[in-house]
């Protein structure tokens, strides 16, 4: 039972971090950033390229690459479109996503590549009388630590306060002196940091990367964001955990014959939630009026 819970929360944690990465950018600029998938995939490829080098170095480089990629994307693709309607920006993010994905195919071909960034964590430990996979435990703990760190950042730092103000009312925050470029760049950097962490943990679990590596997790995280309530960070985190926990529990407790259809059950629950709470569990305020 404890093993299942750790499993559930490690999966949920990854979805939560991904959903937060998407939510951070959405809340400040109303961009549903589909290219978040590549913010995850690209650092995972960096791990592949750097495998054999010291783990710390590989991880640090992939984080750095993710941040640079995010800043470049913002500067080149999204800044010129700022203030344009969200649908256009969404399509632009599709374009960025496809472009990067094809670039990866071009550079590495589309076959899967082995990665094992966290080989040290291969074993398991005994905890409360259960065998717990060390990697999953690490994933769960890392996710929780990052959630706390992000909360502290948003609550107690200058940039955090500016981000929250901008997320509430972008126009008003600008009037009060919040610099739009800085706040948006901060959102992209944070989003990329979270994406890189997800890349490391998720690739360590799956053991390989491929050009659609980030997409599989980002699709689910998008659903989590919508369930939680678009534009609400607490909602994104809770939605991520919820989706992860539910899908793991389905995996564990569905009759074996039905397990291949786990996703169908998951999305059935998603539909039910949205039928009763179309705005998500924690609707964001002021989604209507925009810059």
């Amino acid at each position: 039972m404890i093993a299942v819970l750790v499993d559930a929360f490690s999966v949920g944690g990854l979805y939560a971090l991904t959903a937060l990465g998407i939510g951070l950018i959405f809340s400040v600029m109303r961009l549903a950033n589909f290219a978040h998938a590549e913010f995850v995939t690209v650092p995972a490829y960096a791990l592949f390229v750097l495998s054999g080098h010291p783990v710390i170095m590989a991880i640090a480089s992939s984080v750095l690459i993710a941040v640079m990629l995010a800043l470049a994307t913002e500067r080149i693709a999204f800044r010129p479109l700022r203030g344009i309607d969200p649908a256009t920006m969404l399509i632009a993010s599709f374009a960025v996503s496809m472009f990067l994905q094809r670039l990866l195919v071009f550079a590495f071909d589309s076959r899967i590549k082995p990665v094992d960034p966290l080989a040290v964590l291969a074993g398991s430990v005994r905890l409360f009388g259960a065998q717990i996979n060390l990697l999953k435990l690490t994933t769960m703990v890392t996710c929780l630590v990052l959630l706390v760190a992000l909360t502290v950042f948003l609550k107690y730092t200058r940039f955090g306060l500016e981000m929250r103000a901008a997320a509430e009312d972008f126009t008003m925050s600008r009037l009060l002196g919040v610099r739009a470029n800085r706040v948006i760049a901060t959102a992209f950097v944070l989003s990329a940091l979270l994406a890189a962490v997800v890349a490391v943990l998720f690739s360590a679990q799956t053991g390989f990367v491929h050009p659609r590596f980030g997409l599989q997790i980002v699709i689910i995280a998008f659903v989590a964001t919508v369930i939680g309530g678009l534009g609400n960070l607490v909602g994104a985190a809770v939605g991520g955990f919820l989706v992860g926990v539910v899908s793991t529990l389905l995996q564990s407790f569905l009759p074996p014959d039905l397990r291949p259809f786990r996703e169908a059950f998951l999305f059935f629950i998603v539909i039910l939630v949205l039928l009763f709470r179309p705005q998500g569990l924690f609707p964001a305020r002021g989604l209507k009026e925009r810059i």
């Binding site: 107690y156 730092t157 200058r158 306060l161 500016e162 929250r164 103000a165 509430e168 009312d169 008003m172 925050s173 009060l176 002196g177 919040v178 305020r285 002021g286």
Partner: peptide
């Protein structure tokens, strides 16, 4: 009025103060 409704009253004021160059 247009306050930041999800922020506390003090945080609403602090946001404006940051622009005058004050530290948090």
């Amino acid at each position: 009025v247009r306050l930041f409704r999800g922020l506390t009253v003090a945080e609403n004021i602090e946001t404006a103060l940051l622009s005058t160059g004050l530290a948090r």
